[in-house]
Amino acid sequence: MLAYTLTRLLYLALVLVVMSVLIFLVTQAMPGDVASMIAGQFASPEVVQAISVKLGLDQPLIVQYGRWAAGILHGDLGRSLVLEQPIAPILMEALARSLVLAVVALTVVAVAGIGLGVLAAVRRGKLTDQMVSGISYLGIAVPDFFWAIVLVLVFGSYMKLLPTGGYTPVAEGVLPWAAHLVLPVVTLVLMLLARIARLTRSSMIDVLQTNYVKFARAKGMPESVVILRHALKNALLPTITVLAIDFGLILGGVVVIETIFSYPGMGRLLLFAIQRHDLPLIQATILVVSAAYCLANLVADLLYAFVNPKIRHGMRTA
């Protein structure tokens, strides 16, 4: 298990190194030149040159990359050109807000999605199953921005129950903070719930047909024990994978939803950086998003081992 985790962490580091090179190269290839942007439209070539030298932009690419990468290793993500502030605090704040969104939304998705999936599998072919399936398809088929707009209209504009957007820190009161979270979370849940429910349903149906479930029934175990103790734990593996991917997705920024609700998470930060051509900010944001994705997947794989002792065994030997 330890060896497995070590190996995975090593691979993760490798992936991030490769990612950092790619990010660096791609942002270099973007149109526009940082020095002239800083200097402004009407600056003389001498001023631009001076800024270039000051920022080290006249150095070869490899040297520039080395300085950037070394900075990151020391926890220095650089300075935003547009905001003229160090990037790290800005990024951490956005990440924290995305994290809140991800944790709240995915907790709801996991509990409700797995619950509905189990219910549909147990009542397979009956009305409950068909209703869960119908709602799931609706959730999958209708795009998230549509839900977002409907929710904003109904709860924000007409009923005036909830703020239609923005964000207030917890420090200014828990209730306003929570009120701002409700609509984005509900939209995310509507978007992600259907897939989790469908997935749990289908793997639950498979597991319910296994011999060990039949044997549990032959031992006289009541259905609740058969379903929760014997079937569910084994049926959760694919669900965990998708939940982890979804977690990475939200951390990486759900741009459309964050924009509609003006929620200042990773998505809006990245969008802002790209629109304003803030190269260091773009680079740092994408790198953090990649790291978040990789970590979420690693956590999912470790969770696998927690759920399935056979995989735990495989990790010990392979």
């Binding site: 296994t210 011999n211 060990y212 039949k214 044997f215 549990a216 029934r217 032959a218 031992k219 006289g220 175990m221 103790r229 014997h230 734990k233 084994n234 759920v307 399935n308 002792p309 056979k310």
Partner: peptide, 21 residues
């Protein structure tokens, strides 16, 4: 009665035991 007065053993031991318990 199942598992108490009437107990069963099935064909395939490899799949009759729950892998997670």
């Amino acid at each position: 009665l199942r598992g108490d007065s009437i107990a069963a053993v099935f064909q395939d031991p490899f799949t009759s035991l729950n892998p997670a318990l």
